[in-house]
């Protein structure tokens, strides 16, 4: 699905990714974890083509993403902070994104699911953080792409919406899609993900299932396993 070879990225003097090699096979939920500043968002943005790597190749479904934009038809991306143009109405934003990509009718179900009907005529600048995040979810899940990338999807969500989001992720997984998630909420990661990728100082420190991680670190639970990696590496 996604293969990354020897990916390097520097921002000025700050070397964020130092040779990442990663292969993500089709189907399943993959969580990208790591401490703050370990390069999670940079990695994801490189896959999306928003950050241009200094070195290395990325292919998505066998297509090299360099100087290519059409491969993004197969990707649904949910950004970390829901920053939308503030003078647009929710309805207009959804219509616009539909117009820019393929048309879809899934948005109605999602709007109902997250109870967004009362907000459709409001401007995005006047919405609360959680409501914006729900709009973000609708925009991401209304298209039927085979790769879904979620950057901190749980931010600002109330418990009911969180449950709905988890259900949504599971339904998408059952359709055979590949889902890439970053999150700092360990319980969420443990609950949804099949495999984790742990980034540390710009390199991949661990890739495998959660139980493999527990055996490797000799810790009884996931949260402690992560904590032990961090304290062993002084991160």
């Amino acid at each position: 699905m996604v293969s990354i070879e020897n990916l390097h990225k520097k921002f000025g003097k700050n070397e964020v990714l130092k040779g990442v090699d990663l292969n993500i096979k089709s189907g399943g939920i993959f969580a990208v974890l790591g401490p703050n500043g370990s390069g999670k968002t940079t990695l994801i943005k490189s896959v999306l083509g928003m950050v241009i790597p200094n070195k290395g190749t990325i292919t998505v479904q066998g297509e090299n993403i360099k100087k290519n934009s059409s491969y993004r038809h197969n990707i649904d991306y949910m950004p970390q902070i829901a920053n939308f143009p503030s003078n647009l109405k929710v309805k207009e934003l959804i219509k616009m994104i539909k117009d820019l990509r393929n048309h879809t009718n899934d948005d109605q179900n999602l709007i109902q699911l997250f109870k967004l009907e009362p907000f459709l005529d409001k401007k995005l600048g006047n919405l609360s953080g959680g409501t914006k995040q729900k709009v973000n979810i609708v925009l991401t899940f209304m298209f039927d792409s085979s790769l879904i990338i979620l950057d901190e999807p749980t931010t600002g969500l109330d418990p009911i919406s969180l449950i709905r989001l988890k259900e949504l992720i599971q339904t998408e997984k059952k359709k055979g899609k590949t889902i890439l998630i970053t999150s700092h909420i360990m319980s969420f990661v443990e609950e949804v993900s099949d495999e984790i990728v742990f980034l540390l100082e710009g390199k991949i420190y661990f890739k495998g299932t959660i139980s493999e991680l527990k055996t490797k670190t000799n810790q009884p639970d996931f949260e402690h396993a992560i904590a032990s990696i961090l304290s062993d590496n002084n991160a």
Partner: peptide
Amino acid sequence: NSKEFSELLLAQPLKR
């Protein structure tokens, strides 16, 4: 002012 809008568009299948 349209930085957010541009970032939203950059993740869509559009040429820069």
